[in-house]
Design a protein around this nucleic acid. Sequence first.
DNA 1: CATTGCAGTATAAAAAATGATACTACATTA
DNA 2: TAATGTAGTATCATTTTTTATACTGCAATG
Lengths: 113, 113
Amino acid sequence: MNYDEPFGCSVTVTLKVIGGRWKPIILFNLLENEKCRFNALKRMINGITQRMLTMQLKELVDDGVISREVLEVVPPHVEYSLTEYGKTLTPLLLQMRDWGAYHAQRSEAAAAD
Amino acid sequence: MNYDEPFGCSVTVTLKVIGGRWKPIILFNLLENEKCRFNALKRMINGITQRMLTMQLKELVDDGVISREVLEVVPPHVEYSLTEYGKTLTPLLLQMRDWGAYHAQRSEAAAAD
DNA sequence: CATTGCAGTATAAAAAATGATACTACATTA
DNA sequence: TAATGTAGTATCATTTTTTATACTGCAATG
């Protein structure tokens, strides 16, 4: 998501933060699991590569919606979780999930003709 | 948006329909203006090319969220509008706009240090 | 002693999204 | 008669996103 909003469209701002193929899924897992370590997320999110997970997590951290805590053990553990700010996305994420479920159901029904 | 949802994530389904750089803006204009003709949309949406507008409109029509009506005059007029189904996106679009506005304000405040 | 798990990085390539430009046919306007 | 507006299409180029693959160092496990 590298686009600057054409005329200050707030929707586009939102997409810049949580748009893209993986971010919503990452945020969802953090919504459901509170804290997740890197490899735990990788296992949960089917098909994501390490590189993509790393990149998306970094962007989410930079945007302040998730936090990254390093536990100083050997080997190091890293825990990701939603920040308080990130939690303001909860209703939006739930609504996106609900509309998606609604749409998927409708598409399925249409395909059953 | 060409990705199939990794594990049936509903949020990803939603992104498939309304994700991308232009779709939310197109939908917003149709939310605010009821009916829009092709060139009217092009003028409203700063920076979009004819090609992108054509493509995004076609996808939105295919997904059933907007309708395309051709008025048989010369030269032909084409009117786009949200379908009843598309209107079910209204609360989601408004929430995306609201969170984006909230986030933009926060970013601005942070930049003012 | 070899493998596995930890949390990544580096490099290169492929795929997808987006953009730029020119073009269509017809009718009205200047 | 030339320019403008209608709603696009066609072709090519560029940018962005995503993937694939190999690699790091350290510790515990088998």
